[in-house]
């Protein structure tokens, strides 16, 4: 372990001195250079996120230096260090994990390069290490889902027994979206005593997980009215399970999900899902806007929430043809 660390340090130092010799300094001609360290390309959501950032940088005339960390923190730290060396005007990144960023962010601060976090937050006591965090508010997403259910409680009581029984398919246990989407949803449905969560289990954000858990719920919970899935994929898995049980998804059991990826939107337009809360990856324009403001020395809020909406089946059918992801 120690050896690896030493080797890594040596590599990092080597890299630094090399780039220093190269003297690759960003030209100070008023144009903005942004270094962006992406997590990876693990999902369609992430790919759309990358495309959005690249396209809006081009549109805004911002030079983008892009790196893909392939889900590894050390790769992200390496690319942030190289951005510091290259003296970019602003650094943006989606941290792969929450902790362990203080050292490298200190370096950026000392080099007087502002840092913008996108999509995911970092866990640090020193909030001066970054200027702002652009991303979704997962609690709010849960609240939107819960609010829809409260508003449509009567229609959602499929078996008309006076109680709306919800089963919940949670995301990966301990992940921020899973915790927050659960909390927001629970807060809202507590307003209506008819609605209660009768079973809740993790489906790990995957279709297979969602399907297997839903299969079990269909046997153990006799009166399911609503499925609340923390993402589209688990909802799509649940649809399969409901069909196999001889029921009609969207009609015999109502389904609410979060994300609005293409497959989910297709199912929504087909009426197999009843409501989707969007979790948008298209934060490129907002990011470029913030970058310009930060470089110009303007104040930006500490927390910027991505502009997001919700979809009903009719709205989904409308936007589906030009859905990017």
């Amino acid at each position: 372990m120690k050896k690896t660390l030493t080797a890594l340090c040596a590599l990092a130092i080597g890299g630094m001195s090399l780039s220093a010799c190269g003297g690759s300094e960003a030209a100070d001609d008023g144009s903005i250079t942004m270094g962006f360290a992406q997590v990876g390309a693990e999902s369609g959501w992430r790919t759309a996120n990358t495309t959005s950032i690249q396209e809006s940088a081009k549109e805004a005339g911002i030079e983008l230096k892009f790196s893909d960390a392939q889900q590894k923190q050390e790769n992200q730290i390496k690319s942030i260090r190289s951005y510091i060396q290259q003296k970019v005007d602003v650094i943006a990144f989606s941290p792969v994990v929450e902790t362990g960023w203080d050292a490298v962010l200190q370096e950026a601060k000392r080099a007087k390069i502002p840092v913008v976090l996108t999509d995911r937050a970092v866990d640090t006591e020193d909030t001066s290490l970054y200027v702002t965090f652009i991303g979704s508010d997962f609690v709010e997403e849960g609240e939107k889902a819960g609010q829809w259910l409260v508003d449509n409680a009567d229609a959602s009581d499929v078996d008309k027994d006076g109680a709306v029984n919800v089963v919940e398919l949670q995301g990966t246990t301990g992940s921020a979206p899973a915790i927050d989407r659960k909390k927001g949803f629970e807060d809202k449905i507590s307003a209506d005593s008819k609605i209660k969560i009768t079973a809740s289990q993790t489906g790990d954000f995957t279709r297979d997980g969602g399907k297997q858990v839903m299969e079990a719920f269909l046997q153990s919970e006799p009166k399911i009215d609503v499925v609340y899935a923390h993402n589209d994929d688990m909802g799509l898995g649940a649809i399969e399970a409901i069909k196999a049980a001889g029921k009609k998804p969207g009609t015999d059991i109502k389904i609410i999900t979060v994300d609005a990826v293409k497959d989910g939107m297709t199912a929504l337009a087909a009426g197999e899902i009843n409501f989707i809360v969007e979790c948008s990856p298209l934060l490129g324009p907002q990011l470029m806007d913030v970058a310009e403001k930060v470089v110009a020395g303007e104040e930006v809020p500490e927390r910027i929430v991505t502009e997001e909406t919700t979809f009903t089946p009719e709205q989904a059918a409308e936007v589906l043809p030009d859905r990017k992801y």
Partner: peptide
């Protein structure tokens, strides 16, 4: 089983 492949989780 899910008509799909997710190279990350399969």
């Amino acid at each position: 089983n899910t008509h799909s492949v997710n190279a990350n989780s399969l």
